[in-house]
Nucleic acid binder design. Structure first.
Lengths: 126, 126
DNA sequence: CTAAAATTTAGAATAATTCTAAAAATTATT
DNA sequence: AATAATTTTTAGAATTATTCTAAATTTTAG
């Protein structure tokens, strides 16, 4: 786990390691800040709201998580870093991955001068 | 303007008419709540923050506006109701339309049981 | 082992939005 | 038109998610 953090330029500390272990267990997840606070509490990890925010945002900036915004208000953090899309279940306020090859996108528009693509987000609201 | 509101099941009142006139002038716009408050102030329309929120949300539910969420925090309301996609200029916090035929999407994934598509949102962050 | 630097934290601050309940406007009824 | 009933608007309080602050703690470096 430390080498994973190091590889992304993040110093492994106790809470970063603990949160990384909650999240990177090999399964794809879409967690909110509250989800992580609950998970941490369940594992008796003593931490603070501010630290969870700090850590998740650091992970996102470092490329360990993908931040997904589908609604004003709550942000989700996605542990699946490979290219993919999302279903958003509006009534359940829940995301689900769509494999990249389930949607075929071709012919991107020309970009405004001096711009490059940071990401392409496809969300199907259902 | 009244007939437009009536057609969408919205009773035309003074502020609804005033906000509708600010927004539906034939040009496509992406406005935030603050933008509308500023526009209204510039036109000497006397209204309140709560009313702008109420009105924009009513318009969105009624299908007169499309609510677009690209960042946690601020919501945008899009006056372009025809099918299209968006560039999001992250540094400027600004949206720009992408014509529907500039991106070719084919082969949608199968939906979970009992679900139907409410919308497909494609955002290219640049 | 100690000093310096970085991280964590509790609680305050902020920002966008929603809620509340009273006032005003609109619509319906006489 | 006058009055009653209903709907809308509003100011300000409340809520929610998030960020900030500055002190305490942990981690790293010497």
């Amino acid at each position: 786990m430390d080498s994973m953090l190091n590889k992304h330029g993040i110093r492994p500390t106790k809470i970063r390691r603990a949160i990384a272990e909650l999240l990177f267990d090999g399964t794809d997840k879409h967690v909110s800040v509250d989800d992580v606070i609950d998970l941490a509490r369940a594992q008796k990890i003593k931490t603070s709201v501010a630290s969870v925010y700090n850590t998740l945002n650091q992970f996102a900036v470092a490329g360990l998580l993908r931040k997904v915004t589908v609604e004003q208000g709550r942000a989700f953090f996605d542990t699946n870093l490979s290219e993919h899309h999302h279903f958003y279940f509006e009534d359940e306020e829940r995301l689900e991955d769509i494999p990249v090859d389930a949607i075929n996108i071709s012919g991107l528009p020309k970009l405004p001068k001096g711009r490059r693509i940071k990401s392409i987000d496809v969300t199907i609201r259902i």
